[in-house]
Computed example of a mutant assay.
Amino acid sequence: MDVVINIFVGLHIIGIASLLGGFLTQMKAMSGDGARFVPAMLHGALTMLVTGIVLVGLNQAADHSVNNIKIGIKMAVLVVILALVYVKRDEEKVAKPVFGAVGLLTVVNIFLAVLWT
């Protein structure tokens, strides 16, 4: 079971990398005319959501302790990210505050995962 959990942790990290990488590639555009949400950001957020839900289920099935408050907060942050990216995905230019909020929330989600033990 630990091997399966580790595989999904790896997939979860790939989702984070896709979301944050998509954001970072648009940083230069944000300082100019305006950035846009690239498909990698939407796919990364969806990957994080699906693998995160699977990870919670696998950890509970393996009788590992799960901090439900931490998971709930991380999921709420991710749902906000996913909603912003999904709604604005077809726009050529996204407002700087909205785009910046997605990047900030992504970093917050990463630090929640790493620092909250």
Rank of each mutant, 00 (worst) to 15 (best):
V85Y: 08
V79A: 15
L58T: 01
E92H: 04
N67F: 02
D63Y: 09
L104K: 01
G72E: 01
A83K: 03
I69M: 06
T51A: 14
G57W: 11
F99Q: 10
V54R: 00
T51I: 12
I71H: 02
V50P: 00
A62D: 10
E91F: 13
L82N: 07
T106Q: 04
A62F: 00
K93D: 07
L46C: 05
V108F: 14
P97S: 06
E91A: 13
N67T: 01
V94K: 10
L84I: 15
G100K: 08
V98M: 14
V98Y: 10
Y86R: 10
V77I: 15
L49Q: 11
T47E: 11
E91D: 15
T51V: 11
V94N: 10
P97Y: 06
A101Q: 15
V80L: 09
I53L: 06
L105N: 05
V80P: 03
G52P: 05
Y86P: 05
N109G: 15
L82H: 08
I81K: 09
G72W: 01
L42M: 12
M48S: 07
V85Q: 07
A40K: 13
K88L: 10
L82E: 07
H64K: 03
V77F: 09
V108N: 10
L84P: 13
A62W: 00
V66W: 06
L78E: 07
I110T: 09
Y86K: 10
G44S: 06
V98L: 14
N67I: 01
A40L: 15
A101H: 14
A62Y: 02
K74D: 07
V56R: 03
V50Q: 11
G44M: 04
T51M: 12
A62H: 05
A40I: 10
Y86V: 10
T47D: 11
N67Q: 06
I71T: 02
S65H: 03
L58H: 00
G103V: 13
V107M: 15
Q60G: 09
L42T: 06
G103K: 14
F99L: 10
L105V: 08
N59K: 13
V94M: 12
L55Q: 02
N109Q: 14
V50E: 02
I69L: 09
V107K: 13
K88H: 13
L55G: 03
V87A: 13
A101C: 15
V56C: 02
A83E: 06
P39I: 15
V56W: 03
K96C: 07
V107Y: 11
L55D: 02
A61C: 05
K96Q: 11
V77S: 07
Y86T: 15
P97I: 06
A76W: 02
S65E: 04
K88V: 02
K74N: 11
M48H: 08
E91Y: 07
R89Y: 13
L105M: 12
V66A: 09
D90C: 04
K74S: 14
K96W: 10
H64N: 05
G72R: 01
V77Y: 06
G72I: 02
N59V: 03
T106A: 13
V79D: 12
V102W: 07
D63W: 08
G100L: 08
N67R: 03
I69F: 04
Q60A: 06
R89Q: 14
L82S: 05
L104H: 02
L42R: 14
